[in-house]
C-alpha cells in the first residue's frame, strides 16, 4: 500500500493575525510556518501504519511556492519517504485540488486534513476525490490496516462508525486519527536532507473563489466581574441581562 499525505503549510497556531493593503491580504511578515496540525497527525498515523507493516511508501505533497519547502523537509524528517511540491501559489481549494489530482493517481490511500487552519476551507480532500472519481470518507477519527484491508473509523452526528471502503480512497481526517504528533528526531533531520523533494510545474486552473477583504473581530467589551462568593449575582446576570438561562 502506498500512502499520500497532503500537507498544508500554515502559520503557527499562536500567530497574531494581521492584514495589509486595506485589509486585502494576510500579512505574513515574521510568521513561523508549520505543518497544518491535522496533516501532522495524518502523517503520524501513516508512520504508525508503516511501522506495523503493510505500507511500502509514504509521500507528502504540497501545492505552494518555494517558501513551503522547510515544511515539507520537516515532514520528511518525521519520516515520509519522499515529497512533491507543486510549484504554484495556492489560490483556493479548487485550484489546490486540481493540482493534487495530477500527482495522486498512484496512491492507494490519500490522507487530507479536515481543514487548513488558515483559510479553513474544508474543501480540498472531498474535491480531490471527486476529481479523481474515487471514494472518500470524511470525519475520519481512526484508520487500521488489518490483513491488507483498511478499517476506517468515522464520527457521525451523535456517535461513530467503523467502515470498510475500497481503495483508492481519500480519508479526510480529524481528531483521534493520532494522539501526539511526531516530532522529528536529529537522525530524521539528517536523513531528510537526502530524501527526494520533487518540484513539479502546475497545470492550468482557475480559482473559483476570490478572497476580497478581511476584518478582525470587533474588540470584546470588558468582562463583567462578579465576586467569588456571589454566584447568585452571576446567575441573575445570565438570566436577566444575557437572557441565556
Amino acid at each position: 500500500m502506498k500512502i499520500l499525505v497532503l500537507i498544508s503549510n500554515v502559520p503557527d497556531t499562536t500567530t497574531k493575525i494581521r492584514f495589509t493593503g486595506d485589509n486585502k491580504a494576510f500579512d505574513a511578515t515574521g510568521v513561523q510556518w508549520i505543518i497544518n496540525p491535522w496533516d501532522e497527525l495524518a502523517l503520524t498515523r501513516a508512520m504508525e501504519l508503516k511501522e506495523a507493516g503493510g505500507v511500502e511508501k509514504i509521500t507528502v505533497a504540497n501545492v505552494g511556492a518555494k517558501i513551503t519547502e522547510p515544511t515539507l523537509r520537516k515532514a520528511l524528517a518525521v519520516g515520509a519517504d519522499d515529497a512533491i511540491r507543486i510549484d504554484a501559489e495556492p489560490l483556493d481549494a479548487y485550484f489546490v485540488a486540481t493540482q493534487l489530482a495530477e500527482v495522486a493517481k498512484d496512491y492507494d490511500l490519500i490522507l487530507a486534513g479536515i481543514e487548513a487552519s488558515d483559510y479553513n476551507g474544508a474543501g480540498v480532500g472531498g474535491m480531490l476525490a471527486e476529481m479523481m472519481g474515487i471514494n472518500s470518507v470524511s470525519a475520519v477519527s481512526g484508520i487500521d490496516l488489518e490483513n491488507g484491508e483498511l478499517k476506517i473509523h468515522r464520527d457521525i452526528d451523535g456517535g461513530s462508525q467503523v467502515l470498510t471502503v475500497p481503495t483508492p480512497l481519500v480519508a479526510i481526517v480529524q481528531k483521534g486519527i493520532a494522539i501526539d504528533p511526531r516530532i522529528p528526531a536529529m537522525r530524521g533531520i539528517m536523513m531528510a536532507r537526502k530524501k527526494p523533494l520533487n518540484v513539479v510545474p502546475p497545470v492550468d486552473a482557475e480559482a473559483r473563489t476570490e478572497f476580497l477583504t478581511y476584518e478582525l473581530p470587533a474588540p470584546k467589551a470588558a468582562c463583567k466581574m462578579v465576586d467569588e462568593d456571589n454566584a447568585k449575582e452571576l446567575v441573575r446576570l445570565l438570566r436577566e441581562e444575557a437572557k441565556v438561562l
Binding site: S117, N120, L212, T213, Y214
Partner: peptide
Amino acid sequence: VFTGKAFANIQI
C-alpha cells in the same frame, strides 16, 4: 478564517 481570529468576505 484563521480559526476564528478574523473574518473574510469571499466572492464565488
